[in-house]
Amino acid sequence: MSQTAEATRGDAVRPAARPGRWGLGAPNYAASPAALPTVLGLPVLLWQLVFFAAPLAFLVVITFWQVRNFRLEPAFVWDNWSRILGSDTFHKALAHTMQVSTITTVLALLLAVPAAYTIAFRLTARQRDIAVAALVAPVFSSYIVRIYAWQVVLSPQGIANSLITAIGLPALPMLGGAFSLQIGLLTLTLPIAVLILVFAFSGIDRTLVEAAENLGCTRLNVFLHVLLPAIRPALILAATTTFLLAFGDFVSPMFMTGSKPPTLSILIVDTVKSGSQWPRASVVGVAMLAVLVVVVGAGRWLGAERRPKAKTS
């Protein structure tokens, strides 16, 4: 649809445009050719450098600093690294966080793929727009309020247990374990995972599906051999995004399990709060970033691999 629009627009304007009159060296630049990009670019560049890149770089620097008499002092020691990387608490928290976020990733994908499939292929265009709007809203709104609501629902005398006991079943201890933690993390991640996959499914050329069906493919085979391979990059994107969010989240482990056992995020906050052990908290933070870089890198590698499978993405 928009393709035709673009074509007509191009045709209408093309005769008037003179090639070679745009770009950096165009003659109608009054001032220096770099003036406009500098004026536009410098503020945003500086802002991101000062408030984003510099803090992260500084975080790495502090990991080598020392705390003396509760004061942070510049130094160059490996002590913080060896202490944290050798500590049992860190190992346990790392293993726990990895495990939890891997489970969230698997659950989110298992739930998101069929949901996104239904939204993309079984709803009318209008219904699909509404579904997308309903999915975008929770991504940007009040995660912490919703986690509090799950506390209310899942607590021992909470709403879920009121309903369960009302129909004569024994109350369940739902809050404070792996179950409630996953509920919380899925609240955070599921809308985003579904959105990514809805866009991917919607972008698939429908004639591919029709061709496969005409050639006698069953629905399941179309799904497994046409649709899933076609959205592989999006699957990987959804998986890495989910993992990233679950891995770094503080609120769900804090309020859905009472931070027992602690995740790495909780370890950071505790280390910062319980005194001035900034360097050690920074080591945990940098280690987390390293894990995420590896995960995202692995995702990109997986996404890029085996591309020449005759797919028109």
Partner: peptide
């Protein structure tokens, strides 16, 4: 894409 816990800590330290 950077977890807000880490970003928050880094920003606090730097600021």
């Amino acid at each position: 894409a950077v977890p807000v816990t880490i970003l928050g800590m880094a920003m606090l330290a730097f600021l």
